[in-house]
């Protein structure tokens, strides 16, 4: 469909975007990689020296690294489990005929538009605060001792907050996908004698497999980088109980000013994210051909 003229014009039109993104990607990435092999502390400028793999060694053997990895996995896994299961259930429910569907859907997806700092602070203070929070008032009314969420179950509390933000995302995507399911397929299954449970098992679940994978992959990319929610609620504590990899690197580089170790951590985070990204890209790439 193209001719010579349009091809030249096209290249010219793509270049700004490509050049910008290329710089955005390569320059900082190269610097991170370079810093990760340096002894480099912002408090002692001018003392930079080659450090080989030492930064990686210290970062990887630091006990807080192991904690951070475990916390990251728990955080990502916990939120994924809640949002995928909840999302499927919500989507199935919202897909049923009902009155005021539009309004209800709007209510369900609202949390997704709340900025992370707001949702974290609201949950922390208005709900989970052991004295003034709604949960504390509820516990008192029931005659139970209120739970100090961020002291006793800090990571679970953060998982809860993040799940509240991402459940709408999963619901919305799965609902969109359910609504695109060919009704004739379900009717054919019904003619073939499949009851509701079997229609769900053999028609709807296979249909949802793809969007669920997309939800998992995209959420993973974002969840690996959870930061604001931790910063405003627990600052990674108590101890390292809620420090994930992103937060650990932030502490290393901008609080302890150890650029070298922080960069080594950054490289590791990039590698981890890329493992997920490869799968995601493959799925999206396949879709591009279709």
């Amino acid at each position: 469909m193209a001719t010579q003229h349009s091809r030249a014009a096209a290249r010219l039109m793509i270049s700004p975007a490509v050049i910008l993104l290329l710089c955005w990607m390569l320059v900082p990435l190269g610097m991170t990689l370079y810093f990760s092999f340096l002894r480099y502390n912002l408090l002692m400028p001018g003392t930079e020296s080659w450090n080989g793999w030492t930064n990686y060694y210290y970062f990887l053997t630091d006990p807080s690294f192991t904690d951070a990895i475990i916390n990251t996995l728990l955080l990502v896994g916990g939120v994924l489990a809640i949002t995928v299961v909840g999302g499927v259930l919500f989507a199935l429910l919202l897909d049923q005929p009902m009155w005021g569907q539009g309004l209800i859907r709007v209510l369900v997806i609202a949390p997704f538009f709340v900025m992370p700092t707001v949702s974290a602070l609201v949950w922390k203070n208005m709900f989970m605060n052991p004295v003034n929070g709604i949960f504390a008032h509820l516990a008192n009314a029931l005659g139970v001792a209120p739970l100090d969420f961020f002291a006793r179950i800090p990571l679970a509390s953060i998982i809860w907050i993040v799940s509240w933000q991402w459940l709408p995302f999963a619901t919305l995507i799965l609902l969109t996908s359910l609504q695109s399911l060919d009704q004739e397929q379900l009717e054919a299954a019904e003619m073939d004698g499949a009851n509701w449970l079997r229609r769900f098992r053999f028609v709807m679940i296979p249909h949802l497999a793809r969007p669920v994978t997309v939800v998992i992959l995209i959420q993973t990319i974002f969840l690996l980088s959870i930061f604001a929610e931790i910063l405003v609620t627990t600052n990674g504590g108590p101890g390292t109980a809620t420090t994930n990899l992103t937060y650990l690197i932030y502490v290393q580089s901008l609080l302890q000013f150890d650029v070298g170790a922080g960069s080594a951590g950054g490289v590791i985070a990039i590698i981890l994210a890329n493992i997920v990204a490869i799968f995601l890209m493959r799925m999206i790439g396949k879709n591009l051909d279709a």
Binding site: W24, I249, L254, A269
Partner: peptide, 18 residues
């Protein structure tokens, strides 16, 4: 297109310091 997408997958913390 795929490459552009891949830049989005870069964890921000990886380039925080630079």
């Amino acid at each position: 297109l795929m490459w552009m997408l891949s830049t989005k997958m870069l964890p921000p913390v990886g380039v925080l310091i630079p």
